[in-house]
Simulated scan of single mutants.
Amino acid sequence: MMRTRWVILVSGKVQGVCYRASTEDVARRLNLTGYAKNLPDGRVEIVAEGLQDDLQALKDWCEEGPPAARVTGVEVREVPVSDEFREFRIKD
């Protein structure tokens, strides 16, 4: 199976609502590696590597997020795999 890397940008009320921590939990359950971090413009950036189906499951989850979040947009871009990550974590 081939690994893929996606950069996912999530807009809306996604900071201060445990979005990154919830993303970390979901990504680890899906055996994805990478990170989630807050951006200065209020979005959350997720960089994840793994199998296509698992990345799609993460994207689907991102469209809702945790209960306190109000997602208004999810952008996905595929980029080359780097295999630089050993786990999924929250990045500051």
Score class of each variant (00 low, 15 high):
Arg77Pro: 01
Val17Asn: 09
Glu64Val: 05
Asp25Gly: 11
Leu58Pro: 02
Leu51Ile: 10
Arg43Asn: 14
Ala48Asp: 05
Lys13Ile: 10
Ile46Trp: 07
Asp53Phe: 01
Arg29Ala: 11
Arg77Asp: 15
Asp54Tyr: 01
Val81Trp: 12
Ala57Tyr: 01
Val74Cys: 09
Gly12Trp: 00
Ser82Pro: 02
Gln15Leu: 03
Glu78Tyr: 07
Arg20Met: 06
Asp41Leu: 01
Ala69Leu: 01
Leu39Arg: 15
Leu58Thr: 01
Leu55Ser: 07
Arg77Phe: 06
Leu51Cys: 03
Gly12Ala: 01
Val81Thr: 04
Ala48Phe: 04
Ala69Ser: 15
Trp6Ile: 00
Val17Thr: 09
Ser22Trp: 02
Leu58Tyr: 05
Thr33His: 00
Thr4Met: 07
Trp61Cys: 03
Arg5Leu: 00
Val71Gln: 05
Gln15Asp: 01
Pro40Gly: 03
Glu87Met: 09
Trp6Leu: 08
Cys18Ser: 13
Arg28Met: 07
Arg86Gly: 15
Ser22Gly: 15
Asn38Leu: 12
Ser11Pro: 00
Glu63Phe: 00
Arg43Tyr: 01
Arg28Gly: 07
Asp60Ala: 15
Val14Glu: 09
Tyr35Leu: 11
Arg43Asp: 04
Glu84Gln: 15
Asn38Met: 06
Leu9Asp: 10
Phe88Glu: 13
Asn31Ser: 14
Glu87Arg: 10
Ala36Asp: 10
Tyr19Pro: 05
Gln52Thr: 00
Phe85Asn: 03
Val81Asn: 12
Leu51Trp: 04
Glu75Phe: 06
Ala21Val: 10
Thr72Ser: 15
Asp25Glu: 14
Asp41Arg: 02
Pro66Thr: 03
Ser82Gln: 14
Ala48Met: 01
Asp53Met: 00
Val76Trp: 01
Asn31Ala: 12
Asp25Phe: 04
Ser11Gln: 10
Val79Phe: 06
Phe88His: 12
Arg70Ile: 09
Gly50Cys: 05
Pro67Val: 02
Val74Lys: 11
Arg28Lys: 14
Lys13Cys: 05
Ser22Met: 10
Ala36Trp: 05
Val81Cys: 09
Val76Glu: 10
Ala68Ile: 00
Ser82Val: 13
Ser22Cys: 13
Ala57Lys: 13
Asp83Leu: 11
Ala21Ser: 13
Gly65Glu: 06
Pro40Gln: 07
Asp54Leu: 01
Gly16Ser: 04
Arg86Lys: 13
Leu51Gly: 13
Glu87Gly: 11
Asp54Ala: 13
Leu9Phe: 08
Glu87Trp: 11
Asp54Phe: 06
Phe85Lys: 08
Ala27Glu: 11
Ala27Trp: 04
Leu58Asn: 03
Arg29Trp: 03
Ala57Pro: 01
Asp54Lys: 11
Val44Pro: 03
Pro80His: 14
Gly50Lys: 04
Arg89Met: 14
Val10Cys: 02
Thr33Glu: 09
Arg5Trp: 00
Val26Ile: 14
Ser22Phe: 06
Arg5Asn: 05
Cys62Ala: 15
Thr23Val: 13
Tyr19Glu: 14
Phe88Cys: 11
Val79His: 02
Arg89Asp: 14
Glu87Asp: 15
Ser11Phe: 00
Val7Tyr: 05
Trp6Lys: 05
Leu32Gln: 04
Glu63Leu: 03
Leu30Arg: 13
Lys13Gly: 03
Glu75Cys: 04
Pro67Gln: 10
Leu30Ala: 14
Leu58Val: 12
Val10Gln: 10
Glu24Asn: 07
Leu39Ala: 14
Val74Arg: 06
Val79Leu: 08
Leu30Pro: 02
Lys37Gln: 15
Tyr35Met: 05
Arg70Gly: 02
Leu9Tyr: 10
Ser22Asp: 10
Gly65Gln: 11
